[in-house]
Design a protein around this nucleic acid. Structure first.
Lengths: 150, 150
DNA sequence: TATTGTTATACTCTATAACTATA
DNA sequence: TATAGTTATAGAGTATAACAATA
C-alpha cells in the first residue's frame, strides 16, 4: 500500500477525527456542529444568505432553517440591506460573537493538544500543505477563520 | 498568526473540504455520508453493533436506525451470533460490498485528484503525519480502511 | 426575467430514556 | 446484575420544489 491511496486514506481518517473534535467542542457550548460553523463563518462580519450558503456549502433553504434556530436563541440577527430590499445580512449578536469565540478557541485548543506531539518544523510543513489544498478549491471567506484576538 | 493556531485552522478547513468530497462522492452512489461510512467500516468483515458504534462513534440506538435503513436497501444483513443469542453481526451483502467498494474508490480518486499537485515527498510526509494523529487516538479498526483490491 | 430569500414537505441522522432478552 | 440490541420520542439538519417580493 505505497500508492497514492495512502494519503487519501489518511485524509479521510483525519477528517473524521477533526469532525469529532469539532462536534464535541461545539456540544460543550450547547451548539451543534453546523451551528458552531455558522457562528465561526460570521466572525469576520455580516454576510447575506446567498453568500453564506456558498461559504457553508448548504442549500439556501437549509440555511434558512439553521439561521432560524440560531436566531431564536439570540445568537444572530437578520438585518435589512438598505440597497436591496429583498436581501438581508446575517450578523452575530454580542452574545453570539462571544459564544462563537469561546467555541472557536475550544476547538483550537483541543486540536493543538492533539498535535502537541508534532515537532514545530513538521507542524509548519503540514499546515502549509493543508492550507494549499483548501486554498486550491475555496475562494473568498472560509468557514473557519483564525481567532480574532490572537 | 505564526502560533500553533495555524495548524488547527488548517485542520478544520481541510476536514470541511474532505467531508464535502466524501459526501458528494457518496451521493453519486445514492448513499448518505453515514451510510457510505458504514459500508466502508464493514469492508474488512462483519462486526457486532456495540463494536460498530465504537468505530463510528455513534450511540447504539442511532446505529440501529442507520443499519435499518441500509438493510432495507439490501446492502447489509444482520446475522445471528452463534455464541451469544443477544448479539448479531452486521455483514455486507454482495451488493453492499460492491457498492461500498465503488464509493470508496470514488472518494480515493477524488482526493488523489485534489492532491495531485503535491510532490511525492511531501505526500508521504503529510500522510505519515496524519496517520500518526489518527493512530494516537483510535484503536482497532478504523472507519476508512485502504482499498481491498489494490 | 432574474435574483433573494422563504415555505412546504419529506427524509435522514442523532441522542436520551426506557425497554426486552440473554448472559 | 450486566450486557446486546431495540423502541419510543423529539429535535436538528438537509434537499427539492414551489413560492413571494424585489431588482
Amino acid at each position: 500500500m505505497s500508492d497514492g491511496t495512502e494519503l487519501a486514506t489518511a485524509l479521510v481518517r483525519l477528517s473524521h477525527l477533526v469532525q469529532r473534535v469539532f462536534t464535541d467542542a461545539s456540544r460543550d457550548h450547547d451548539l451543534t456542529q453546523p451551528q458552531a460553523q455558522l457562528l465561526c463563518a460570521l466572525t469576520p462580519g455580516p454576510v447575506g444568505m446567498t453568500e453564506l450558503s456558498r461559504i457553508l456549502h448548504l442549500e439556501k433553504s437549509s440555511l434558512t432553517g439553521l439561521v432560524d434556530r440560531v436566531e431564536r436563541r439570540g445568537l444572530v440577527a437578520r438585518v435589512r440591506d438598505d440597497h436591496d430590499r429583498r436581501a438581508c445580512q446575517i450578523q452575530l449578536t454580542e452574545t453570539g460573537a462571544e459564544l462563537g469565540e469561546r467555541a472557536h478557541n475550544d476547538v483550537v485548543d483541543r486540536l493543538d493538544e492533539l498535535t502537541a506531539g508534532m515537532p514545530a518544523e513538521q507542524r509548519e510543513l503540514v499546515a502549509a500543505a493543508l492550507f494549499g489544498l483548501t486554498t486550491q478549491t475555496e475562494t473568498g471567506r472560509q468557514v473557519f477563520e483564525p481567532a480574532a484576538g490572537s
